[in-house]
Design a protein around this nucleic acid. Structure first.
Lengths: 331, 331
DNA sequence: ATGGTGACGGCAAGCGTTTGCCCCGGGGAT
DNA sequence: ATCCCCGGGGCAAACGCTTGCCGTCACCAT
């Protein structure tokens, strides 16, 4: 029923192989013949069947994009950019949501493997071991994960966290709580390390709370603990967490940034939309999405190349940070 | 290199057809034989090649999901729900972003056609004619578009807009501006009709501005016009537009809701996150995503069934609406 | 004229599955 | 004892495309 290469061949009076070549090896066919074939194809509305093509070339023209939570505002701009880049290269993309579950993540990669030329894992929650294993089965690039032998694009969240801490220190804060995210996220470790350094360099007192789910709820849940800590500022693992924390802190009667300065990470639109607008670490997500696809496509073509690109982050100062008020300490 | 049905056949000592049946027509093979086959498959890590399967069954196990803008906060929760539902049914989903361009939308459907069993068009910008045409080539379901002969899930934004207007009327507003969205969006017409009715019923003065791009920028751009109109309240096509409008209005020295009440549509997270929190029309997006996939799968299986489901919306009153101040009119 | 050389394009195998057809053998009905 | 039926499973074609191989023909150099 659907029009196939055979129909085109019949109509244009050539063999199917010629039709095939007219599309994918243009230099092997005479210009006039090719024109006839293309005309016939056009007339019939012929579209090559990618699945069939995949069967003989073992190239599908598809990519997989796997994220923890599509609805987390960190991801959509990245997905959008990656999708656009893929499309520009004539690739289609499968997008899948793992719901933060590592089992699902692994299963998803495996079940997609045959259908894609490669996959990008965005902020994977999987262990390095499993990722490395998967990378042996299918070209992989990871975003925000450092892994020997696997291509990756990293957003330098460590530098961003450092900037954020310095900003707080300059404002005069001396006791800061760092609200952690999911324990298996690479960014968690980066932030921990960076904040540790800053604390030592400046003699700052740091308290850590977490791990926490990277959601508004997670933020609300830790608010009381943060308030009780007596710290005057907090750096949260992401904007959502920061936002929930701010909301709850305000409900508890605090003023932000008056009583508590809060910094998020991601520079997602919640940071811009919320009030007070959040000071946050900007993550170049669109660039990361594009970069991941480029990297992936490169390793699909060139078989064996792996590489890592690191993208710069920056601190965006908005209205959720201010000097601490010099009241008597609360504890 | 990859393990195929042949390998499994060899290892388990049966013919490939038996292996095939062991997977997809279990009742046609003896239980013991089947167990042997499955064991061999497991041992080898065999996964059926979906592309090959598609070739002979003409069922791909894939779905397409096409949206105007992944980064517009209206879409991600819908995508997430749709994707989850599809996964539960063992379907993979292609997600594509049209960047609000109708040409791209059409081209996307066509280029996916051979690779999916059906597609859902979310808030399509295409004309009815083109959609109907596409629906003839591939099972389609549209979200937020009413179209004879094409399955759809509709969120009753008309009822929502009516509720929103009534809310404003009850608060005492008598001059309201309706900020329109993209002209080709179905919701635009619905809102226009609903507001028209309310205006007549209550003798309200309505002014329309638009069409506008459904973005924060779009909202900022119309703010001055809205302010100059002298109206005391506005109903915007979506939250993003409402949000941009609020921001700009505040920059212009107005207070919201003091000088201007604003209502959005979508109940996306920007409505919750922004300040003042937006009164908005809640859209059951997750349900719509699930419903669309269900509907699509049904028409894929049952060939010829088309249906429309309408989902209820509701008004969420937050902090961006209040009674008008009774000052002298500004014009 | 003769042989050589490309360019062009037909032929057919092969990619991994599914599925209609048929064969085989065992058990129940007669 | 014979016949039938049916469960089980092998065989091979088919799905739509790509690609290595080879034949044909025109054209050029000798």
């Amino acid at each position: 029923m659907a029009v196939t290469i055979k129909d085109v061949a019949r109509v244009s009076g050539v063999h199917v192989s010629t039709v095939s070549r007219a599309f994918s090896a243009t230099h092997l066919v005479n210009a006039d013949t090719r024109a006839r074939v293309l005309a016939a194809a056009e007339e019939l509305g012929y579209r090559p069947n990618r699945a069939a093509r995949a069967l003989s070339t073992s190239r599908t023209g598809n990519l997989g994009l796997i994220v923890a939570d599509i609805a987390n505002p960190f991801f959509p701009p990245l997905l959008k950019a990656a999708q656009a880049q893929a499309r520009a290269r004539d690739y289609h993309v499968f997008i899948a949501d793992t719901d933060e579950q590592t089992r699902v993540e692994e299963e998803l990669v495996r079940s997609m493997a045959k259908q894609v030329d490669g996959a990008v894992l965005v902020a994977p929650r999987l262990t390095n071991r499993v990722i490395a294993e998967l990378a042996r089965e299918i070209p992989l690039v990871v975003v925000n994960r450092r892994l020997r032998g696997v291509s990756g694009v990293l957003m330098d969240v460590g530098a961003g966290a450092r900037r954020a801490m310095e900003h707080l220190v300059e404002l005069g804060h001396r006791e800061i709580v760092v609200v952690g995210g999911p324990s298996r996220a690479w960014t968690s470790g980066e932030i921990e390390r960076a904040t540790e350094h800053i604390a030592q360099d400046h003699g700052i007192l740091i308290q850590r709370v977490g791990p926490n789910p990277p959601t508004e709820e997670g933020g609300r849940a830790v608010a009381e603990e943060v308030v009780a800590s007596g710290a005057t500022a907090v750096l949260a693992h992401n904007d959502l967490l920061a936002f929930g924390l701010v909301r709850r802190a305000i409900e508890l009667g605090l003023s932000v940034p008056g009583d508590l300065s809060v910094i998020g990470v991601d520079n997602s639109h919640v940071a811009r939309y919320s009030s007070p607008a959040l000071t946050t670490v900007d993550m170049p997500v669109a660039e990361a999405g594009r970069g991941a696809v480029d990297l992936l496509l490169r390793s699909v073509d060139a078989a064996e190349s792996t590489g890592t690109v690191t993208l710069e982050t920056s601190l965006v100062v908005r209205a959720s940070t201010a000097p601490p008020v010099l009241s008597q300490k609360r504890h």
